[in-house]
């Protein structure tokens, strides 16, 4: 279990500053949510942490080590990302076996077959699915493969970018249950982007509300139902979500 510490993270795309001095502390083993409207920079934070975007300034640490100073292989072993769209994030011409094996091969891990079988079991897919291709799986099954691909490298931190928003509620329930179970079993630290406060309320211990590339407020989960947001935008967002839910 490792904490994530973000200090003064800024990034500029062209003339636009997309993230303004983001500072967040995610505790070890915590599920931390990022919410906000589209374009508020939630996903960009994950992309900065994972260094898919690398033109940022500031300091991001996982445990004691700065992500900038880590070797690529160490970084990949320490954190993995699950993307929003399971249709777009798996290679269409690679079988599930190829997809899962690639990370093991690159990281020179032994017992590849055993690890793949365990990963498939962990995400609740039949082992025979290793020889299938993504188009032979449903959306929920694909997202399970994406999760298996992330956890097969035994990371400490999982970055989840709207892991269920492309899925139906019925399938979303399966994937959320899976994520909760894996966190209990393996002690992952989750940093999860979501636009759905109900999902955040179900999964997260704390969450940050973002607007225009700034963190407006960091709140515990209870703040959704019991109030406690002090910033206007945070109150508006929670209010709108509660109203939308036709509260309780």
């Amino acid at each position: 279990m490792k904490p994530i510490t973000i200090n003064d993270l800024c990034i500029t795309f062209g003339a636009v500053q997309v993230l303004h001095n983001i500072s967040l502390d995610v505790k070890a083993g915590e599920c931390f949510g990022l919410v906000g409207e589209s374009g508020s920079g939630k996903s960009t934070i994950l992309r900065c942490i994972s260094r898919l975007n690398d033109s940022w300034t500031g300091d991001v640490r996982i445990g004691d080590s700065a992500v900038r100073d880590m070797e690529v292989s160490d970084r990949c072993r320490m954190m993995q990302m699950v993307f929003q769209d399971p249709y777009g994030s798996l290679h269409p011409r690679h079988s599930i076996r190829t997809t899962l094996e690639e990370g093991l091969r690159i990281n020179k891990l032994d017992d590849r077959e055993g690890r793949m079988i365990r990963a498939m079991r962990d995400v609740g897919l039949p082992v025979e699915f290793l020889d299938r291709y993504p188009h032979q799986l449903s959306g929920g099954q694909r997202q399970r493969v994406a999760i298996a691909r992330a956890l097969i490298l035994e990371p400490d931190v999982l970055l989840l970018d709207e892991p269920t928003s492309a899925l139906d509620v019925s399938v979303q329930a399966e994937v959320l249950n899976l994520l909760v179970r894996l966190q209990k079993e393996k002690g992952f630290t989750y940093l999860m982007v979501s636009h759905d406060l109900a999902v955040v309320d179900h999964m997260c211990d704390r969450f940050a509300i973002m607007q225009h590339g700034r963190v407006v407020e960091v709140l515990p989960r209870e703040a959704i139902t019991q109030g406690g947001a002090t910033q206007t935008y945070a109150q508006d967002l929670i209010g709108a979500s509660l109203e939308y839910e036709h509260a309780i």
């Binding site: 019925s170 399966e174 249950n177 309780i248």
Partner: peptide, 20 residues
Amino acid sequence: QGLLAAQPRIGGPRGPLSVL
């Protein structure tokens, strides 16, 4: 019924969601 139950609710219990 399954669709209704699978929906996480704000303030709901955090136990596993029911699955179709």
